[in-house]
Amino acid sequence: MSSELEAFADPGLPVHAPRAADVDPRAEKRAEQQVALLFWLSAFGSALLIYSYIWIPEDAFIFIPVMGDQNAHQLFLGLGMAMSLFFLGMAAVLWAKKLMPDTEMVNHRHEFRSSDEDREALIKTVKEGVGGLKLGRRRLIKGSLLASLGLFALPPVLLLRDLGPLPGKDLEKTNWKAGTQLVTDPGNRPILASDLEVGSVVQVLPAVADSAHRPLSDIAKDPVLLIRLRPEEFKLTPERLAMTHDGIIAFSKICSHMGCAVALYEQQTKHLLCPCHQSTFDVTQAAKVIFGPSARPLPQLDITVDEKGYLIARAPFNEAVGPSFWERNSQ
């Protein structure tokens, strides 16, 4: 290891070399012209911006190669602004680079550590100050102070309580009940089992009284995907098979991973894909996870038909739909 004694000597700061503009009046003149030109370009940009704002109509379009049809108002407004700002900056920098004095200066650094005297004086001051409190002797004050400070921290937290309702069982509830009709989304039309052909997929919602004004928090839990397969394509347990109707199977459309809408149904492979994190579910195996980060199959809705042949739910979901949460109690 080379010690500092063996280090190369510091050649010191290089001698300041004058720039062309420092010694050659013509170069100086040229630099000045360049700076002025940049300032003029900036002024032009501002003018372009003002012109575009007032005189270019907002529905004027212009074809620009590579970029395609562009809104002329937006484009020239932006280009004007960009020029106005950019060239103003460039002018200032060029001015500084070429014409302002460019001698480098040296500052010295100081050590950040305070002197020993200062430190001792500080310690003394603090000791005296804290000593004046005599906390050790004033037991009554000490105890009550701790109690008051501890309680003092609670109200601010408590005051935030009304930010929202308590969750209760809300996450486990949907608008699906025994006998709820399945209606198309959008459209709110009831669906006959015979309306679906093999290979069809329909997004449905539960029929509710006021179907025109569903709260988004309902739409975050209620959507169901209705898929029709050939019944022999199912690989289901008898219980799960009983929840289907004539090849029609219904799953929650809300991903069991993070709640995105799982809706990419591949008709040939019978796979459902979530576009957010690519969890893939096999419809023939009761939406078993076959790829991706989701840990649970999509909840299956028990469906049947009413006397007129319209699809209805036979029972509500038997588990919470959507992403997991701490209180969730099911596999």
């Binding site: 198309t184 669906i191 006959l192 679906l196 052909e197 069809s200 997929v201 898929i227 149904y265």
Partner: peptide
Amino acid sequence: TGPQSMPVFNDKTLTPEE
């Protein structure tokens, strides 16, 4: 017709106007 991976949207589930 629902070619390849695409599901079928027949006239009952997605009306002709839709």
